[in-house]
Amino acid sequence: MDLLGRLFGDGDEPRVALFVDGPNVLRDEFDVDLDDVREAAAEAGQLTATRLYLDEHATPGLIQAAEARGFEVIVTSGDVDVRLAVDVTQFAVEDRADVIAIASRDTDFKPAIEAANARGCRTFAIAPGEFGRSDALRNAATERVTLEEESDDDSPTLVGYDG
């Protein structure tokens, strides 16, 4: 593949936009690593957007660590749900992605998934664990995955919210 193909994609792989609901995923009880979320979404194609949505309670260390992992961090002054749902819908309507991946346990994103489906996007629900799984979100999405519970290894995790 040439340099432009590596930089902008060769057109063969689906474009994947990943949206992570930070307050609902990055909680102590889930022990989620953002690298695992990224890897799960990358199974669907080439990541062209990786966004982590956080509220004003996020620690500076969490923001810095997420940015170091290549995530675009979007901090809202309140509940992140509306901003994330609007962005998902905008990506689908503007044809900015072939696959919309949402990492969350929140049923509130079901309408955004349905809107993306209606625009012809594949949709991918990523649950932080069995306990954190929204069946409504999973059933609305065309594809789904539940992240495995982390083992007691030394791999780094990002936990920025306490449940």
Score class of each variant (00 low, 15 high):
1 M>T: 07
1 M>D: 05
1 M>H: 06
3 L>Q: 08
5 G>S: 10
6 R>W: 06
7 L>R: 04
9 G>N: 08
9 G>W: 09
18 L>R: 01
24 N>H: 02
24 N>A: 03
25 V>Y: 03
25 V>A: 02
28 D>H: 09
31 D>Q: 13
33 D>H: 13
37 V>M: 03
37 V>H: 02
38 R>V: 00
38 R>L: 07
39 E>S: 07
42 A>Y: 02
43 E>N: 00
44 A>L: 12
48 T>P: 00
48 T>E: 10
50 T>S: 13
52 L>T: 03
52 L>E: 03
53 Y>A: 04
53 Y>V: 02
53 Y>F: 09
54 L>H: 06
61 G>H: 09
63 I>T: 10
67 E>N: 08
72 E>Y: 14
72 E>C: 01
75 V>S: 01
75 V>Q: 11
79 D>T: 03
79 D>A: 10
87 D>S: 10
87 D>A: 06
88 V>N: 07
89 T>A: 15
92 A>Q: 10
98 D>H: 15
98 D>N: 11
102 I>D: 00
104 S>R: 05
110 K>D: 01
112 A>W: 08
113 I>S: 05
114 E>G: 04
118 A>M: 09
121 C>G: 05
124 F>V: 05
130 E>D: 11
131 F>K: 07
134 S>N: 06
139 N>V: 09
139 N>M: 11
144 R>N: 05
146 T>W: 05
146 T>H: 02
150 E>R: 15
151 S>I: 14
151 S>E: 14
155 S>G: 13
156 P>H: 07
158 L>N: 00
159 V>A: 08
